[in-house]
C-alpha cells in the first residue's frame, strides 16, 4: 500500500464573486514507500491545495486522496504522518516542550516517550537552549525548526513538508537537508513542496511539476540530470590547443585551455586525445539544471 495515493483529485473554489476557480484538476499521483518526492510548481500551481487535502484541511471537489490506504480526511490517516505546514504557527503561549508534549499526547505517546523524544528532537534541530521559552519569543527560523521537530517526534513513516526550507538561514537549510537525507536512509517517505530547484536536486528521488492545477510531468531526478547533459568541459595543456580547432576552445590560464565538447562528440574527442597522448586534466559535464527543466515546462504551459 502506497504511503500516498491520489486519484483524479480536483478542487474547485468559489471566489468572492462566487466565480469558480479550479485550483487542482484531475491530479493522479502515487508516492512509493521510502522515496523522497519533490513537488515543484510556481505560486498558485495547486501544491498547497494538494497538501491541504492530504492532511484533511480542505475537502476535494472530486477524486480521492489516501494516506496508507485511509481516506485523507479521516484523522486516523494522520497517525503515521509528520506534517510541517508552510510558515507554521503554533500555540505561541506554550513553550516548545509544552507544545511537543501536546503533539505527543495527540499521537497517543506515553509520558516517558514524550519526554525522551522531545529531548532528542529539540537537540537535533538545535532548539534545546530555548526549549523552556514561550514560542511567541521565537524567530521565524526557530518556529520553522520547531515545526520540523514536531514532525519527527513520533517517528512517522511519512513526512509531508510544505516549503520546509522557507524562512531558514543557510545553517538551517543545511540542517533540514541533512535531516531529510537521514530520513531517506532510514527508509522513510518524504513528500515535500518547494520553489527551490536546488533542493530537489540535492535530496529528491522523483519530482513532479504542477502548473495551473495540472500535473505536467513526473520524473526521476537522476534521469533528468543524466538526460540534461549537453556536453563536457575539458581542461587540457594549452600547448595542445591547436588540436581542437573543431571545438569551442578558450585559454583558461597560461598553461591550461578549456574545451567544450558536445555530448555526441565526446568519444571522438577522447579518441583524438588518446591518439595524440594528451594529458586530460579535468572533465566536467555541463548539464541543464532542474531549474531550466522546470522553467521550460512552466513557459510552455503558460504560453
Amino acid at each position: 500500500m502506497n504511503p500516498i495515493s491520489i486519484e483524479g483529485l480536483t478542487k474547485v473554489y468559489r471566489d468572492k464573486k462566487r466565480r469558480r476557480v479550479t485550483a487542482l484538476q484531475g491530479l493522479d499521483l502515487q508516492i512509493e514507500a521510502g522515496e523522497v518526492f519533490g513537488f515543484l510548481g510556481p505560486n498558485g500551481a495547486g501544491k498547497s491545495t494538494t497538501i491541504k487535502t492530504l492532511v484533511g484541511q480542505i475537502q476535494s471537489t472530486a477524486g480521492c486522496a489516501k494516506l496508507f490506504g485511509i481516506a485523507a480526511g479521516d484523522p486516523r490517516a494522520r497517525r503515521r504522518i509528520g506534517y510541517l505546514p508552510e510558515n507554521p504557527s503554533f500555540y505561541d503561549f506554550l513553550t516548545a516542550k509544552e507544545y511537543l508534549s501536546l503533539v505527543g499526547r495527540c499521537f497517543g505517546m506515553d509520558r516517558s516517550a514524550i519526554e525522551r523524544e522531545s529531548e532528542r528532537v529539540l537537540e537535533l534541530v538545535d532548539l534545546h537552549p530555548a526549549a523552556k521559552r514561550k514560542i511567541q519569543g521565537y524567530s521565524k527560523g526557530m518556529v520553522q525548526r520547531l515545526g520540523l521537530a514536531q514532525t519527527l517526534l513520533h517517528d512517522p513513516d511519512l513526512f509531508i513538508l510544505d516549503e520546509p526550507m522557507s524562512g531558514l538561514d543557510p545553517l538551517g537549510r543545511a540542517l533540514v537537508k541533512q535531516v531529510m537525507i537521514d530520513l531517506r536512509r532510514r527508509g522513510k517517505t518524504i513528500f515535500f513542496s518547494t520553489h527551490v530547484t536546488a533542493d530537489v536536486e540535492a535530496v529528491c528521488d522523483r519530482v513532479a511539476v504542477l502548473v495551473g492545477g495540472k500535473l505536467q510531468t513526473v520524473n526521476r531526478v537522476s534521469e533528468l540530470l543524466e538526460k540534461g547533459i549537453e556536453g563536457y568541459v575539458i581542461q587540457l595543456p594549452s600547448a595542445t590547443a591547436g588540436l581542437w580547432s573543431d571545438f569551442e576552445a578558450r585559454p583558461q590560464s597560461d598553461d591550461v585551455c578549456e574545451v567544450f565538447v558536445p555530448r555526441g562528440k565526446f568519444n571522438s574527442f577522447m579518441a583524438i586525445a588518446g591518439r595524440e597522448g594528451v594529458e586530460v586534466q579535468l572533465i566536467e559535464p555541463r548539464r541543464r539544471s532542474i531549474e531550466q527543466f522546470f522553467l521550460e515546462i512552466v513557459r510552455r504551459e503558460t504560453e
Partner: peptide, 14 residues
Amino acid sequence: ERRYTASIMTLPVS
C-alpha cells in the same frame, strides 16, 4: 486566523 488550526488540526485529532 492565527493558523493554529493548520498545525493542530493536522495531528490525528478530529
